[in-house]
Design a protein around this nucleic acid. Structure first.
Lengths: 196, 196
DNA sequence: CACTCTGTCTACCATATGGTAGAGAGCAAT
DNA sequence: ATTGCTCTCTACCATATGGTAGACAGAGTG
């Protein structure tokens, strides 16, 4: 079954926004990509801002879902759980690089949209914070500021996923084997950074 | 002495490009910010692309210089040297958040400009690569792929510096004390990630 | 049939943007 | 004085963009 026009618009907009940046992508471009008139697009999302909002809401929801699932099925050991999250995030991030690129756009968004989005992610961050704190107290993680550690892990993962240039400069290439190696190095890097 | 018009344009463009993104910043905006007519701007840089090129070249040169200086005066111990680089990069990055934000734009640039820039940074990356390799062999760093390690360090630093949202979500705030704490956590994080 | 609702379209508009053409002011050299 | 060079400006233009107005087709309903 073919997805609805609305969904096709969301998918296309997510990819284009994430890949080229929100400002660089015109409604006309998205419409062409979807194969529909611009006004159809404006019928579903009355303005570019609302389209962006929809795109972000969907992407955030998806990400939260993926992470949640990974955590639920991971063993009760902090480094293993971290591993599970990285693996879980890595797959969709590689298949659709736009997803993380999109998140990187947040800092440039109008305040309202940004807040709405951060609000959606906040619960996740708070859970992570509490969890990290507990594990640090239990001596299973290196003692540090849990909030900053969470932010640093996030920065490392999104940073490496959204900056292919940095990888290319360092002689990496995006083959299947390269991706595996990158994923494993990333996991080892974070493990080492967090191990007690 | 007042800086030249050309320099004032470069400064302003660097800040605006880095802060809001290249596409979101118009020549008119930059001109207004500098306090000059748009055509003056086009006199010094015949097109927006060439202005961008100039901005990137200057920023890259500055960054290379800062890192070079930090390395030259650091002791011969890998973790200390890493520390020195982080501290050196942190200061200008905090004073002018646009600088790192600008680098983040690279992945969205027309191929020509991007290549020119990566070419400029390549020597630095290669030096880092060789150095990391040697220190790993000497057992003073955790053994791993040196290229990916360099990329991961870079991703962590630029990621954390360019995503204040991620920090805010985790309850951090941009006071002087907050900055010190962030810098120290970042150093500890990277040290732990690289220590043998 | 008439009426309304949904979804898509064509036609159009006001504005912003990157860029061109060319004038004029200040200044140094001939 | 004239010429030429450097730097800045006003005036203008073609195009792209976000968005409005409204027509039209089809489906469901009285």
């Amino acid at each position: 079954m073919r997805p609805s026009t609305r969904d096709r618009i969301l998918t296309s907009a997510t990819d284009l926004f994430g890949l080229r940046g929100v400002d660089a992508v015109s409604l006309d471009l998205i419409a062409t990509d979807v194969g529909v008139a611009k006004q159809t697009l404006l019928y579903w999302f009355p303005s570019k801002d609302e389209l962006l909002e929809g795109v972000l809401a969907q992407a955030a929801a998806e990400l939260v879902l993926v992470i949640d699932a990974a955590l639920r099925s991971a063993p009760d050991e902090p480094l293993e759980r971290l591993d599970a999250v990285v693996r879980a995030v890595f797959r969709p991030a590689v298949r659709r690089p736009a997803l993380l690129g999109l998140i990187r756009e947040v800092s440039r968004l109008p305040a309202g949209v940004a807040e709405q989005l951060t609000g959606r992610v906040q619960p996740l961050a708070q859970r992570a914070h509490a969890y990290l704190q507990a594990e640090m107290n239990a001596g299973r993680l290196r003692r540090a500021d849990p909030g900053l550690i969470a932010a640093l892990c996030y920065a490392t993962v999104t940073g490496i996923a959204t900056e292919p240039e940095a990888l290319r400069v360092n002689g990496w290439e995006p083959s299947a084997a390269g991706l595996r190696r990158l994923r494993d190095e990333l996991r080892a890097f974070l493990r080492a950074a967090l191990a007690p």
